[in-house]
């Protein structure tokens, strides 16, 4: 059995905090279900159902890492941790990875209910699940990137909106569903788009994206984004005076 408390690594600290606050944990697990399940069992068009799930994943991911990081930066506790011999890049990587996994744990029950209410081929179920995880990882990268520029959790919301709005547009959640030319090319670099396609497939809409593409391209894009965000670690963890 993995022992997370007392934590011996930074990521275990986040896990211990996540599971340590029971009321907060219940809320965290319930709110995705409250938003996603009514959509999953309703008769709304598949593309909108997929879009709602996608938006919930993006918001959970972006605000998860961004908010907790800015709060820890404000408290000064993250700076104190950064003054230990731990590598700043390792700290940021742990923040990124653990937040993505914890966000995924939050969304998983709701996703399982979606799959239960909308039976789909296993390959699409797996692709959609992976697409959601890649989206969470991307969103957490964006959250950490934003934390480089602000120490206010409220500003995270503002900056996140500015960054996410064009990405959501590019991904074709609501508009720009069949992009051409440059928009189509740019869409291929946004992991949200692959999740959206996979979820639409789960809801029974044909998509031009193959399941394999949902696994391969977002994985590559996430790896690049994660590396880029980890490179910002020394700046992120340097006190701003």
């Amino acid at each position: 059995m993995l022992k997370v408390n007392p934590p011996d690594t930074y990521w275990k600290k986040d896990v211990a905090l996540f599971f340590g606050k029971r009321f907060s944990l219940v809320i965290k697990l319930l709110y995705p279900m409250a938003l996603i399940v009514p959509v999953a069992i309703s008769d709304i068009p598949a593309q909108y159902a997929a879009a709602v799930i996608g938006i919930v994943a993006i918001m959970a991911g972006t605000f998860g890492a961004g908010e907790s990081l800015t709060m820890d930066l404000n408290d000064g506790i993250l700076m104190r941790v950064a003054l230990t011999p731990l590598s700043p890049r390792r700290i940021v990587f742990e923040v990124l990875a653990v937040n993505a996994v914890l966000d995924f744990i939050q969304l998983l029950p709701a996703l399982l209910l979606v799959y239960a209410f909308n039976p789909a081929p296993l390959v699409w179920v797996l692709a959609a699940t992976f697409g959601v995880f890649a989206t969470l990882l991307t969103a957490n990268c964006i959250g950490i990137f934003i934390a480089n520029f602000t120490q206010s959790p409220a500003d995270v919301l503002l900056y996140a909106t500015a960054i996410l709005a064009p990405l959501i547009y590019l991904s074709g959640f609501f508009r720009n569903r069949n992009p051409t030319g440059l928009l189509a090319t740019l869409r291929d670099f946004v992991p949200f788009a692959y999740m959206n396609d996979a979820l639409k497939a789960v809801f029974g809409v044909a998509t031009r994206t193959a399941p394999l593409e949902v696994f391969v391209y977002p994985a590559l894009i996430c790896a690049v984004l994660a590396a880029a965000v980890c490179l910002t670690a020394p700046r992120l963890l340097t006190p701003r005076f």
Partner: peptide
């Protein structure tokens, strides 16, 4: 970390060192 115990906080730092 206010929601962790004093021991957990100190243990985290000890291991970080």
């Amino acid at each position: 970390y206010g929601d962790l115990s004093g021991w957990a906080n100190a243990y985290l730092f000890a291991r970080a060192y």
